[in-house]
Nucleic acid binder design. Sequence first.
DNA 1: ACCTGAACACCGTTCAAGT
DNA 2: ACCTGAACACCGTTCAAGT
Lengths: 186, 186
Amino acid sequence: MRAVAARLGTGPMTLYNYVADRAALDALVVDGVLRGITIPHSPSSDWRVDVRGLAEELWRAVRPHPNAIPLVLARRSQSETFLDAAEALLAALARSGLDGEDLLVAFRAVTTLAAAFAQTELTGPLSARNGGADATIDRFRSLPTERYPRLIEIAGVARTSTPEAEFRRGLEALLDGLQQKFTQRR
Amino acid sequence: MRAVAARLGTGPMTLYNYVADRAALDALVVDGVLRGITIPHSPSSDWRVDVRGLAEELWRAVRPHPNAIPLVLARRSQSETFLDAAEALLAALARSGLDGEDLLVAFRAVTTLAAAFAQTELTGPLSARNGGADATIDRFRSLPTERYPRLIEIAGVARTSTPEAEFRRGLEALLDGLQQKFTQRR
DNA sequence: ACCTGAACACCGTTCAAGT
DNA sequence: ACCTGAACACCGTTCAAGT
């Protein structure tokens, strides 16, 4: 609150004329981030490209704002921005044939994957391309080999992989699973 | 810091003899939560039951501590507790045949799904069984039907589904996808 | 060497007074 | 009615003094 007020050149209390709470300001922050998502005007013929597109929009929108990601995951903001993006993603997922609880779960899994992969990339140790990541990766790689063989293996991989590729792979695996879920049911 | 110190009956500064930082204390919190995970002594013959078991352990360990979940997702703590649990999950995933970047991505997707589903359940609007969730679900259900049909559909589902079932379904879909990823490759 | 109170620079918010 | 400064009850951490 105080930081925002200072940036606007007023005292802290002035904000309370526009916002009820710190929580309400958090909601506006999330809203601002989600406003970066572009929703296609009309769906394509392939639900998978639509879901992938929206998931990547979310991932891209969220990535420049690591501190806001926990707020996004906690689902602050039920503004139109959020509702429209959610409905668009749900519509794309539903075109795969999923409905009911499967649809709810698919929605949660996809949004969660996008937000959490972005966060892990930016604050987690097991990823390339963030300040100090190399140091952490080296620490992992110097662990006792007999005890942590797989950890060492993926720490090696993390040195050269890109966040884009990692997210893309995770998303494709999830979409495969969701598609198969529907196929099994019919 | 001050709250912990007060609970221990000392002044705030005493903690600094045991801990470098607020960040170090956060790491201990995450560590305490992860210590609730039970790692089987020896793997079973089915990688899927092992991965599922460990993922559910993580989900269960994290669920009573909603405020710590963002810290878990941000990967504080590289203690033995964390390393051992991570290695056990990686070993189980590797027994599916995945390796390299696939293994890294699978690890991230599974841990992320467990932590984030627990968090969404506890702080998010789209889930049953948390104080005030019914109110939020009702709000969703009273949205304009033509504009948000799918949102309304899943809000209806959320009224009666359980967190356990939702997480289980999401996890199974992801595991299907990971399994298929390996099958496709050979 | 180990411990810790006072003090500092921050928070979000209440309350009362300003226009 | 709309706005906002002073003040309160909190933070994490530095610094200096205690044993």
